[in-house]
Design a protein around this nucleic acid. Sequence first.
DNA 1: GGACTACATGCCTTGATGCGTACATACGCC
DNA 2: GGCGTATGTACGCATCAAGGCATGTAGTCC
Lengths: 111, 111
Amino acid sequence: MSDVIWAALVDPHRRAVLDLLRERDRSVTELVDELGVTQPTASKHLRVLRAAGLVRVRKDAQRRIYAIDLEPIAELDQWLAPYRRLWNDRLDILGRHLDEPDTGADIGKES
Amino acid sequence: MSDVIWAALVDPHRRAVLDLLRERDRSVTELVDELGVTQPTASKHLRVLRAAGLVRVRKDAQRRIYAIDLEPIAELDQWLAPYRRLWNDRLDILGRHLDEPDTGADIGKES
DNA sequence: GGACTACATGCCTTGATGCGTACATACGCC
DNA sequence: GGCGTATGTACGCATCAAGGCATGTAGTCC
């Protein structure tokens, strides 16, 4: 997946923006208030998120309403998939050992 | 989830390391060869990955064998979960509209 | 059209990051 | 103990990203 997406998500403020937009669409002013940052700072973060395709904008009179776009998130999920599979496999193995503690004939008990 | 994990994952070289370690454990020299970077560079990346808990090391004589640790990845997966849920919800809605294109009585046809 | 609101952009400074080079350290072998 | 291999670290440098401040721009209202 694109480096741009990772670069966008690495910043806590930008992840906070996504969290807020997950709830509902918001104007820049709303985001500024919620994040506690200055307006230019928020605008720059939004620019990065836009470049990564993580948010979309629509105009509402003089306001800009930002909405989340989940497609890059789905990409991230795909990147994660093989790791998640590995993780689950290992949990399964652990679970089997916990379920059948005395069938570990192949583990080789000490001595 | 911790910023350290995001910071560790943002670098392509470090993600490449994880990809390689997903396959099997490897020594630093192996990673250096695979990544095509100098040894100090690799060591620094590994340091960051260690700090984030994404890899573990064990000593084998003068070599250090690195192995992946999936727990931070699981954390990332948890962070992703609400987004994935939202994504799936929207796919479902889209799917329903595609399946039953003419039952959209509540959509409000024009005029 | 002038004032006001909402937002974006440019410039600057500062702190973080990645890489290269050189060096230090640890281990095995003889 | 000296040497070679394997790895980590210190330092300097270049790049970059984040925030502050000032300014530009678009839209609304009167």
